[in-house]
Nucleic acid binder design. Sequence first.
RNA 1: CGGGGAGUAGCGCAACGGUUAACGCGCACGGUUCGGGACCGUGAGAUUAUGGGUUCAAUUCCCAUCUCCCCGACCA
Length: 412
Amino acid sequence: MKQSKLFTKISKEISKEETSKNAQLLIRAGFIDKLMSGVYSYLPLGLMVFKKIENIIREEMNNISGQEVLLPALLPKENWEKTGRWKYPEMLKLQNRAGKDFSLGWTHEEIITPLVKKFVKSYKDLPIYVYQFQNKFRDELRAKSGLLRGIEFSMKDLYSFHKNQEDLDEYYEKVKAAYFKIFKRCGLEKVTFLTLASGGAFAKYSHEFQTETLSGEDEIYFCKKCDLAINKEIIEEEKHICPECGGKDLEIKKSIEVGNIFKLGKRFSEPFDFMFRDKDGKENPIIMGCYGIGLGRLMGTIVEIYNDEKGIIWPKEVSPFSVHLIAIESSEKVKNAAEKLYKNLQEEKIEVLYDDREDKTAGEKFAECDLIGIPTRIVVSERTLEKDCVEVKKRSEKESKLVKINEVSSSL
RNA sequence: CGGGGAGUAGCGCAACGGUUAACGCGCACGGUUCGGGACCGUGAGAUUAUGGGUUCAAUUCCCAUCUCCCCGACCA
């Protein structure tokens, strides 16, 4: 993509009110725009990152046999009354002019359960894994920290349907592994920990994936003895003892919850009377699990982890482009060489943001390039062309190197 | 919802109970530049969030409302 065509512009400044790093950098660089507190638009660059994350998750969900659907966001009251969750305080509600009640979905158990029930009747149909990417709405008391806590946000939610607990347990572990792959691909491998959390009404425990960062609003405890991370809520219940080994040597860390997985059991199959007929001809209740990842929050978390004083440093797999090509000094010679390289790279299926703007100085282009944070920068100038070269620099490194212009794509 | 802070040009901000609301960025035009946010000149752009009050006079002081940010409560 040519940067001269990008309708968004980089801003040198950001209000000092905006204190969260992810909001500062993403807004300045033109990835997102705030419509109101907790509600953001994704602009071209931001949507590219968003789609990268979405596709990583999609691939990993498909790898564990997930089938993608898209459920509505506008949901009828009846489904929530069946499970007793119409009174849930975070649910946003609205009425049509006839007075009929609706909610905007904050989760979709109440929708997916009766939906799957329509098709699944026998043990032969099980297990089933269904997921979607959907915008969720939650009436948070306080939206905050840029993309980290929104009122409207995109979530991948996967629901699994099983004939018994063992089958759920087995799949739960598969999802766990898939989640680790996702966070690894997003560059968060070293800072994301499986964390024991409260199971709510459904099970004793659930698991969260917590990414360690000072900007996190959660607190997790690390048991030094058994290497387990435990959510604060559990530790307090357990009187500051590791529930796994009884250890008392706990280290506290700030973190962001980037994913969670729950064993729902019969919590939703029962109210919807979702049974299947087993081999022996008897009807048994379906056993369920649910598994969520917030996409925007994940994107915000990546920025919180990967930034420096100059801007964002995107991990390879989620970067909007893999190469930021910059032409400086707009002589015909430079322009032609850059243009040619741009075409070549595209033919090689390398995603390139090409800064072809002629009215910007080198310094400005470099500064904006660092802010946007694409992993590899390639500079074409009179100086590099004298040696038949371009300059290649990694965003995460200080030094650049000269590479022969016809060896660029192979060197990437 | 409680506590704290803030709303002035597209953005970032200044000022002050009293001439024409200052400056920077950005934008437009002209020129000089061109490897780390260059420079000079010219120009356009503002009912100072909204409503009320005090006053001879309010962007400035007071009250209310709305919005935003931070802390807290809350977040299966």
